[in-house]
Simulated scan of single mutants.
Amino acid sequence: MIIFSRDAEADQAFLRDVLGCPNVDAGGGRLIFKLPPAEVAVHPTDGADIHELYLMCDDIDRTMAELRERGVEFVAPVSEQPWGALTALNLPGGGRLALYEPRHETAYDLPEDLS
């Protein structure tokens, strides 16, 4: 995954300092971040191809409180969806990240099929 940003240094600092993501310098100050386990979903569309980034958490209220203590401002109230509780925050560079607590079975901890 690559996030294209109008202020890459600010977004890197946010991921490193606010979200606490471990990282390595890939050269020239370009940081590569370790992320928690991830999932990918593919949804149909008749419009333009878009991609969204959703961070998952176990407890949305607790996670939001922890992030607020680090200065994060949420730009959407928590909404209850059939698949989970959802909110969003803006990155310093202008991008948006969604944060959600899944209410569905998750795939990130499924064993790999090595057959």
Rank of each mutant, 00 (worst) to 15 (best):
D25H: 14
L89G: 03
D46Y: 12
W83H: 10
L55M: 10
N23E: 07
L86E: 09
F4A: 07
L89K: 03
G29Y: 08
R62D: 14
S5W: 10
A107W: 13
G28A: 11
L91G: 01
P111N: 14
I32G: 06
L35P: 01
E9Q: 15
I50C: 05
I50M: 09
L15N: 11
V40S: 04
A107E: 13
L19K: 02
P111R: 14
R16F: 01
L91D: 06
E112W: 12
D7T: 01
A107Q: 14
A107L: 15
P37S: 12
E52M: 04
L31A: 11
E101A: 06
S5D: 06
G95P: 00
P102L: 06
Y108N: 03
M56W: 07
F33W: 02
R70Y: 00
N90C: 09
L55P: 01
D49T: 12
D61H: 10
T45F: 02
D49R: 12
A8P: 04
G94Q: 07
V18G: 03
D59N: 13
A10G: 09
H104S: 03
P82G: 12
P82T: 09
R30V: 15
L67E: 03
P111M: 11
A76M: 15
G84K: 02
E52R: 10
N23D: 10
L15P: 03
T106D: 00
M56Y: 10
L110T: 10
K34C: 05
G71C: 03
L67P: 02
T87C: 08
A76F: 06
I60R: 05
M1L: 09
L35Y: 03
V40Y: 07
G28K: 04
L110V: 05
D49V: 10
T87S: 09
I50K: 08
L97V: 03
R68G: 04
T45C: 06
L15I: 01
P102G: 01
R62H: 10
S115Q: 10
D25R: 12
V78A: 06
E105I: 01
L86I: 06
V18S: 02
P102F: 00
C21V: 04
G95A: 05
A41E: 15
P111C: 13
E66S: 04
Y100D: 11
A88D: 07
S5L: 05
A98N: 15
V72I: 10
P36S: 09
A88Y: 07
L31F: 14
D49M: 12
M64C: 13
D11I: 05
P37E: 09
S79E: 14
L86K: 05
Q12M: 15
G20A: 09
D17N: 11
L114E: 13
L53W: 07
P77I: 04
F74A: 06
P82S: 11
K34Q: 14
D46G: 13
R62P: 00
H43A: 12
S5M: 09
H43F: 15
E80K: 10
A26N: 03
H51F: 08
H43G: 02
I3M: 02
R62S: 14
Q81E: 15
D58G: 15
Q81F: 10
A85M: 14
R103V: 00
R62K: 14
R6Q: 14
L91Q: 05
V18M: 00
G84M: 01
M64Y: 08
P111G: 13
A88V: 11
D58C: 04
R6L: 11
E39G: 08
V75Q: 07
V40G: 07
R103Y: 02
V24N: 04
I3R: 04
F14C: 06
V78Y: 05
L89C: 11
P44A: 01
